[in-house]
Structures are given as structure tokens and as C-alpha cells.
Nucleic acid binder design. Structure first.
Lengths: 195, 195
DNA sequence: GTCTATAATTAGATAGAC
DNA sequence: GTCTATCTAATTATAGAC
């Protein structure tokens, strides 16, 4: 459709974000230069500014996109009605989603300090909304007598930390399969809340 | 004892490390300049190099000191013989120690990427040795029939992540006291391994 | 032990040619 | 849309005066 030779905006934009994601995850946002990102993509540093107004916005876009994807994926997940089944489904979903995106997960937890106040607020709101999904499951289960939790918010934070921690040590091709790990973690989560 | 006027090596060294700890925790290692650290201490940038050969070693020293302190503190802790009591003691110790040092904890988890290979190996060995303490408790408890864990290593990683996660949200003066939080977490840890 | 001054390098971001 | 060239500012680390 009459696109000019040398025009790649539809592919270069995503490649810039992919390169930034990989480099930020590996070396940290502050330690990565725009020149490094450009080299990874195969363009000159100046060309990056066609796809992001600045480095900070590039980071914020990655984090917000990740959290919106997390939220959308969880919203699309089937939700069992029984508390125990609902918690089991959440745990397995959480581990699956996070093991699929170790780099985005890493950045979303480690680079909060580098966000502007407005972007930080957006990111925290998205994360909070996702956590609320788990808290609702725990609250319903506690009300129904299926769980015993003295404080649903605290139990939520504890379970999220436990489940997300998988990304810190899990390596593909290791001793345990992904499914087996998810199974064991889901069982621990269930038992932790007295289910 | 005949110390020269203007000589402060015995106090400036620790102050350099304290300033670096605070700034690295707040803004990240790569985002903090030697000039910022010097300004925080109240000396010029050049003077810092009397106390550390370079920025990277300053970071490594902070992390290694933190992990050695963790190991020593745990070694000095009374160790109940019964598995349930031992796990309870570990959980409470872990939370207390980590809530006392949020900045060092943050750095020890977030700045691993900025260590040289040798320092990284030292840090990982220290962390692993500490984790082994918890794994031994779980293994003994499982052997004695007090715990039900399909995989002690995995349960170890899950519990450590859960317990350490407290540092991500706990704020002094909040809704729950430190002791109450530790109590609830220790109970969840116990239940998670079927104790 | 601390300072000032500086070397050598690199950073983020922009301008203008093509 | 990308490149080259460049601006301005900041970086780590060192040298030498005091």
C-alpha cells in the first residue's frame, strides 16, 4: 500500500520495546543506555526517539503493558465458584502467566523506583486491582468457612509473594516440570490459608 | 592517642557505607553517582576512594556484610528441637531480621546483577547456606512426620519468598504490629507445610 | 584525610541531511 | 524512517596540593 522503501515503523516499534525489555531485565534500567538498545535493534540511537519520547516513558510503557496484559488474562480466565477451586485456579494461573514472562515480571517489580509519580500511580493501581482479585477469593472463602485467615489483605500479600517467587529460581529443563511446580505451590497456598 | 587533626577514617568509612546503603536502596546502584554519596557524607568525591577501591566493591561489601550478619544472627539464635517450634522460630527470626534492615534486604535482592562474577558467587553461597538452615528444618520435620512436603527445596524457596515479601509492604505504624504480622506469617508458613 | 582540578569516557537528547 | 554529527551535562577515577 504505497509504503515507502525503508519504512519499518510497524516492526521497529515492537522491536525497540522487546530489546528494551530484555536489556532492562538483564542489566537494570539505569545501567542500560539508549545506544545499547539501538545497537540491539540495529538502528542508530537517534532513531529510537521516533518510538518513545524518552527513556523513562519507554520503561513505563513496558510496565503498564505488562500489568494490563496480566489483568486482561486473569479477567479472561474461567472462575470456579467454590473457594478452594477458585484459589487453586488463581495460583496456577499466576504461576503460568509469570513463568511465561520472566523479564517483564522482573522489571515490573524492580524498576518501580524509576517511574515518574504519575506512572508509578498507574502501575500501583493496576497491581492493586489484580491483588484485589485474590483478596476477593480469600474473603469469600473465609466467609463460607472454607478458609481460616485472620487478615485477608495480609494473606493476599503473603500468597502473591510466595507464588511470584517462583520466577526467582525456576529454570526451564530443571528437576521439576512447570506443571508439577504449579501443583505443589497451589497446594501450599491452599494449605496456608487453612483450605 | 595522637590522632592527627582532620583524621576521621574510623568514622568516615562507616558513614560512606551507610550513605551508599541508603542511596542504593532508594534509587538503585546504577542510578547513584559517587558524587551523590560523597555529598551525603559531606566530603568530596575523590575522598571516597580512600574507603573503597571502586563503586562496585562498595556494593559488594554492603551485600556480603548483610548476608554474613544474617548468617551469624541465625547461628546465634536458639534452636528448638521440635520441628514445628523450629519452623516457628525461623519464621519469626526471618521476619524480625528483615524488617530491621529494609534497605540492606532490598539491595541484596535487587542488585545482584551489578556484582562481578566472583562477588556474585560469594553472595549466592552465603544466601544458599542460610536457605539450607530452613531446608534442614523442613527435612527433619518431614522425616519425623510433622510436615508433609513433596519437595523440601521447593518448599524452602516458597517459604523464604513468602516471609521476605513482608518487607515489600510493611510500614511502621500501620494497621498491624510487627509482632502480630510475624505471628500470622509464622502460622501460614506452618500450615503451608502441613504442620 | 581531604581538597581542587582534571582526564577520559559516556550519557540523553536534538538537528538536519538523505 | 534512519543516519551522522553534535550539544550539554554527567560519569568514574586519578593526581597532586595542603
Amino acid at each position: 500500500m504505497a509504503r515507502k522503501t525503508g519504512s519499518h515503523s510497524e516492526t521497529t516499534g515492537p522491536r525497540v520495546r522487546a530489546a528494551a525489555l530484555r536489556l532492562f531485565a538483564r542489566h537494570g534500567y539505569a545501567a542500560v543506555s539508549m545506544r545499547q538498545i539501538a545497537a540491539e535493534v540495529g538502528v542508530q540511537a537517534g532513531a529510537l526517539y521516533l518510538y518513545t519520547p524518552d527513556k523513562q516513558t519507554l520503561l513505563a510503557d513496558l510496565m503498564i503493558a505488562h500489568l494490563e496484559e496480566l489483568h486482561a488474562a486473569w479477567a479472561a480466565e474461567p472462575k470456579p465458584g467454590a473457594p478452594r477451586a477458585a484459589l487453586d485456579a488463581f495460583a496456577r494461573f499466576h504461576i503460568r502467566f509469570h513463568l511465561d514472562r520472566p523479564e517483564a515480571v522482573f522489571i515490573a517489580y524492580m524498576e518501580l523506583r524509576n517511574l515518574s509519580p504519575e506512572n508509578f500511580a498507574r502501575v500501583e493501581a493496576l497491581r492493586h486491582r489484580y491483588e484485589d482479585g485474590l483478596e476477593a477469593i480469600l474473603a469469600r472463602g473465609a466467609a463460607a468457612g472454607a478458609f481460616r485467615v485472620p487478615d485477608t489483605r495480609l494473606a493476599t500479600m503473603a500468597l502473591i509473594a510466595m507464588l511470584t517467587g517462583v520466577t526467582n529460581w525456576y529454570r526451564e529443563g530443571g528437576r521439576l516440570s512447570r506443571g508439577r511446580v504449579a501443583e505443589i505451590y497451589a497446594d501450599m497456598a491452599l494449605k496456608a490459608v487453612g483450605g
